[in-house]
Design a protein around this nucleic acid. Structure first.
Length: 508
RNA sequence: GCCGCAUUCGUCUAGAGGCCCAGGACACCGCCCUCUCAAGGCGGAGAUCACCGGUUCGAAUCCGGUAUGCGGUACCA
C-alpha cells in the first residue's frame, strides 16, 4: 500500500492480548508494529483485553501486560483504565468480559437471520466424530447435524436439559483478501472445518466471534497481527460480512521463531518480557531489536530509537518469512543503547540492579547514586545488560572478599614470584600517601616496580587485580584501586599475601 | 490428512531484470590498540540467492512445477 492510500483513510489499529500469561515477546512485537503503524500514519492505537477464556485469565497477567507495554513506551490512545479507573476512549469498554451484552445482541441477530443456529452436540460426540474423520484421513469438519433442526427436535433437546452452543453457518465459496504483507490470499470456505462455534454452551462467546464484533465496533481499519492468524482470516471475513460490517484490511506479520524454526515458545526460548527486563535489557534495546525482527528500514541503518523507527515505518518492508529470535544480537543492540545513555540516566536504570545485588548478599551495602555515577565511566561500555553490573563492581561494596589463591598466580609466574610481587606492590602502594592516591601516580609507581624487578607489567597487574577484586576480568586496574581507596587496597593485599603464603607453606 | 504461507551467509537482513560471480549487521577467526575484560579500528572466512524448468540479449529479482519448513485445522486465544 502506498503511504498516500493509508493516509487517506482513518487509521485505527489495535493490540488485543489475552491475560492468560505474562506479556510475551511476540505480543510485544505485534503491539510495537501496531503502535508504529499508528504513529507513522497519524492513527489511533487501541488496546483491548481478550479475557473470555475465564479459566486461564487473571488480573495479575493483565497487570503484567499493561505494565510491560507501558515500560516499552507503547502507550495506547484508547483502552482499559487502571483498576478502579474508567476506560479511555469512545468505544469501550475495552475488556471483552465487560462487552458480553454486545456479543449477545450480535449472536441474537445472526440467529434471527438464520446465519447461525443452536447446536446441541456434546463434546463427546464431536470428539468421536473428529476421531472418526481423522482415522479415515479426512480433514476434521463439523457434520452440520444440528444445522437444520426442527422446532420439535430443539424442544426435545431442551427437555433433556442439554444446553446449546451457537454455530455460525460457513457458506461455501472462495474467500479472498489482499493481505498488506503477503498479497492476495484465497481460501476455500470448505476447508474451514464446517460451521463455527461462536458461543459456548455455557454462554460465553469465542475468540473468532469477539474479535470480529469488537474490531467492527471499535472501527478498526487495519488488523495487524501474527501469521498464525492468516488461516483464520476467512472466518473473520465471513463474520464481518454476516454482521453487515465493513471488512478491515489485514496485515499478517511473520512469526518469531525458536532456533529450530518452530513458533517461538516458552519451552525453547525465554518469552516473557518481564524476564528480559529483570536481566537488564533496556526498552531502547528491546524495542530496536523487536522492530528489526521482521522489518527493516530498507537501508543499512539499524540503531534506531522508537521515534526514528516510527518516522520510517511502513508495512512494505515487513518480511514475509519467520525470524529466529537471536539473543546475541539483542544483547549487542542493548549494549549499544546502554552506551548511549546519559550518565545520570544510567545511574537511575542501574539502581534496582545494584539493590538486587545487595539483597542477594553480594554487596554489604547499597552504594549511593553519586558513588555509582562515579563508576559509570568504568562500566558503561562493559554492560551488555544492566544485570551485569554486579560482576563489575560488587567487590567495591563488599566488606570481605573471597579470593581463590590459584588465581593470584599469573600464568607466566609461579607462586613464589606472585608472593614476592604482591609484597613489593603492597610496599609501593603503602608508599603513596592518601593525598597522592591517584590512578596516574599508582600506574607510574607500579610500572616502575615491575621494571625494576624485570617483571612483565601485565603479570604484576594481574596479581594485584585478583588480590583486590577476586576476579581476573575487571574495570581498569588503577581506577579500580582509586575507587577502592588506599586503606582497603592495603588490607586486601595483606590478605592475599597471607593466603598465598599459607599456600606455599611459607609463614606470613 | 486437508488448507494456507514461506524459502538470500549459522542468525537478522539489503536487494523490486543489467549497479550483484550478491551489500550490511550479530556471531566466528585473525591483526591493531591494550594492565585484564570490554569498547573501538582494520582484515578474513561464510550464500552455487531451496531445487528444476521456462520467459529474456540478460533473473536473486518475472512465470510454472518440485522439495523442504512452518502455521492453521478446538465449545484456546
Amino acid at each position: 500500500m502506498t503511504s498516500e492510500a493509508v493516509a487517506a483513510a482513518t487509521v485505527r489499529v489495535r493490540i488485543a492480548p489475552s491475560p492468560t500469561g505474562p506479556l510475551h515477546i511476540g505480543t510485544a512485537r505485534t503491539a510495537l508494529f501496531n503502535y508504529l503503524f499508528a504513529r507513522r500514519y497519524g492513527g489511533t492505537f487501541v488496546l483491548r483485553l481478550e479475557d473470555t477464556d475465564v479459566e486461564r485469565s487473571t488480573a495479575e497477567f493483565e497487570a503484567d501486560i499493561l505494565a510491560g507495554l507501558r515500560w516499552l513506551g507503547l502507550g495506547w490512545d484508547e483502552g482499559p483504565g487502571l483498576p478502579g479507573e474508567p476506560d479511555q476512549g469512545p468505544f469501550g469498554p475495552y475488556r471483552q468480559m465487560e462487552r458480553l451484552a454486545r456479543y449477545k445482541s450480535s449472536s441474537d441477530r445472526l440467529l434471527a437471520e438464520d446465519k447461525a443456529y443452536y447446536c446441541y452436540c456434546s463434546a463427546a460426540e464431536l470428539d468421536a466424530e473428529r476421531k472418526r474423520l481423522e482415522a479415515a484421513h479426512l480433514p476434521p469438519r463439523y457434520s452440520g447435524r444440528c444445522a437444520h433442526l426442527t422446532a420439535a427436535e430443539r424442544a426435545a433437546f431442551e427437555a433433556e436439559g442439554s444446553r446449546p452452543a451457537i454455530r455460525f453457518r460457513i457458506e461455501p465459496g472462495i474467500v479472498a483478501f489482499d493481505d498488506l504483507v503477503r498479497g492476495h490470499v484465497e481460501i476455500d470456505a470448505s476447508a474451514l472445518g464446517g460451521d463455527l462455534v461462536i458461543v459456548r454452551a455455557e454462554g460465553t462467546p469465542l475468540y473468532h466471534f469477539c474479535v470480529v464484533v469488537d474490531d467492527a465496533a471499535m472501527h478498526i481499519s487495519h488488523v495487524i497481527r501474527g501469521e498464525d492468524h492468516l488461516s483464520n482470516t476467512p472466518k473473520h471475513i465471513l463474520l464481518f460480512r454476516a454482521l453487515g460490517e465493513a471488512v478491515p484490511l489485514f496485515a499478517h506479520l511473520p512469526l518469531i521463531l525458536n532456533p529450530d524454526r518452530t513458533k517461538m515458545s516458552k519451552r525453547k526460548t525465554q518469552t516473557a518480557v518481564d524476564d528480559y527486563i529483570h536481566e537488564g535489557f533496556i526498552r531502547e534495546g528491546l524495542v530496536n531489536y523487536l522492530a528489526l525482527l521482521g522489518w527493516s528500514t530498507g537501508s543499512e541503518d539499524e540503531i534506531l530509537g522508537l521515534d526514528e523507527i516510527a518516522a520510517r515505518f511502513s508495512l512494505e518492508h515487513v518480511q514475509k518469512a519467520g525470524a529466529v529470535f537471536d539473543r546475541e544480537r539483542l544483547e549487542w543492540l542493548n549494549g549499544q543503547w546502554i552506551r548511549r545513555l546519559a550518565p545520570a540516566e544510567l545511574v537511575g536504570r542501574l539502581r534496582p540492579f545494584v539493590q538486587a545485588e545487595a539483597a542477594a548478599g553480594r554487596m554489604d551495602r547499597v552504594p549511593a547514586d553519586a558513588e555509582i555515577e562515579a563508576l559509570v565511566p568504568l562500566v558503561q561500555e562493559r554492560l551488555p545488560v544492566l544485570g551485569a553490573i554486579g560482576d563489575l563492581v560488587d567487590f567495591l561494596f563488599a566488606d570481605r572478599l573471597e579470593v581463590d589463591p590459584a588465581l593470584l598466580v599469573p600464568k607466566r609466574w609461579d607462586a613464589a614470584t606472585a608472593l614476592g610481587g604482591l609484597r613489593a606492590a603492597r610496599e609501593t602502594v603503602a608508599g603513596v600517601d592518601a593525598g597522592g592516591f591517584g590512578s596516574e601516580a599508582l600506574e607510574a609507581d607500579l610500572r616502575g616496580l615491575a621494571e625494576a624487578h624485570g617483571w612483565k607489567a601485565g603479570d604484576l597487574f594481574m596479581a594485584i587485580r585478583v588480590a583486590v577484586t577476586g576476579r581476573t576480568a575487571t574495570p581498569p586496574l588503577f581506577q579500580t584501586l582509586v575507587a577502592l581507596g588506599r586503606e582497603r587496597v592495603l588490607v586486601r593485599l595483606d590478605s592475599a599475601i597471607g593466603g598465598l603464603a599459607g599456600q606455599t607453606g611459607e609463614g606470613g
